[in-house]
């Protein structure tokens, strides 16, 4: 591995490239929406950067190369760089997605990058999803409400149907990346809308027999226009979710449940 540069060696590559090497390289232009709210003189603007494409280059590789070699002030967020932590959601050519697992070879030579809308901007491509997610979680009480918060840990665990455990995990796979909210029409109009991420959270606890809450309790937190009745069923959330969560089904399910309570 001594004969390749650090950037190349870090780049994920396709097996075809591994076997054969690859042909001519493209020059990519990444146009990035720049703005640093901490700097009084800063004004929002598009700034183009050019990079030489490498085999298996992702936006993680490209943006780091730009920051290391061209512009040390460029702000963005990556943590796991493997598509599992949800840090790096941004708008790539108009569509919210995870930048770390976006391969440049699947994009044209001109790539436009902008921060997720809706969330507080920290700077450039970095937004404060964490603050919003915590606020949402506090409002929805997004934690399991335990029957017995202090179980005897020496005893065997309570049983759970294996299929049910799998179903709960299916909804627990959300990585709170914010793509669903960034793509949401309702969120554009209602700043307190809990979003598909919030409704999916509630659906997850609703499904979990370990949670003591009733439909009435859930109605209290999502039974209004900032909750499940605010959704206009545009379903962009479902389309952009990087984890392919069944958001459309879950929102429809929760709406039906909540309508029943509302009619009572």
């Amino acid at each position: 591995m001594n004969d390749v540069t650090a950037t190349q060696a870090l780049a994920p590559i396709s097996v075809t490239a591994l076997r054969n090497g690859s042909g001519a390289r493209r020059t990519l232009t990444l146009s990035v929406l720049r703005y640093n709210p901490q700097e009084p003189s800063s004004r929002p603007r598009m700034q183009p950067y050019t990079v030489e494409e490498a085999d298996g280059m992702t936006l993680f590789i490209a943006l780091n190369e730009i920051r290391e070699k061209q512009d040390p002030s460029l702000q963005f967020d990556f943590v796991c760089r493997a598509g599992i932590c949800g840090s790096c959601a941004m708008v790539v050519n108009g569509r919210p997605t995870l930048a770390c697992r976006t391969l440049t070879k699947n994009l044209g030579p001109n790539i436009t990058l902008a921060p997720l809308p809706f969330f507080d901007l920290i700077g450039d491509l970095s937004v404060d999803t964490g603050k919003w997610m915590r606020g949402m979680s506090e409002r929805l009480e997004g934690w399991l409400h335990m029957k017995n918060p202090d179980p005897d840990l020496r005893r065997m665990e309570e049983k759970m149907d294996p299929d049910l455990a799998d179903k709960i995990y299916e909804l627990d796979r959300c990585i709170e990346c914010g793509c669903c909210v960034a793509a949401c029409g309702t969120a554009r109009m209602r700043e307190d809308f809990v979003g598909a991420v919030g409704l999916n959270r509630v659906a997850r606890f609703h499904l979990d027999p370990r949670d003591t809450r009733t439909d009435d309790d859930y109605y209290d937190v999502i039974g209004d226009d900032d909750g499940v009745f605010g959704c206009m069923s545009l379903l962009a959330c479902h389309d952009v979710c990087p984890k392919s969560l069944p958001l459309a089904t879950q929102i429809a399910f929760m709406r039906r449940k909540m309508v029943k309570i509302g009619w009572k």
Binding site: W143, L144, M146, N148, P149, P151, L153, R154, R155, M156, E157, E158, K159, M160, D161, P162, A165, D166, I168, Y169, D172, D208, R210, D211
Partner: peptide, 19 residues
């Protein structure tokens, strides 16, 4: 460690279960 798994089972972790 077994107590930790059981605590987390009570707190909400959807551990895969035996069939």
């Amino acid at each position: 460690a077994p107590k930790a798994v059981r605590e987390l089972a009570a707190w909400g972790v959807p551990w895969s279960r035996v069939r």
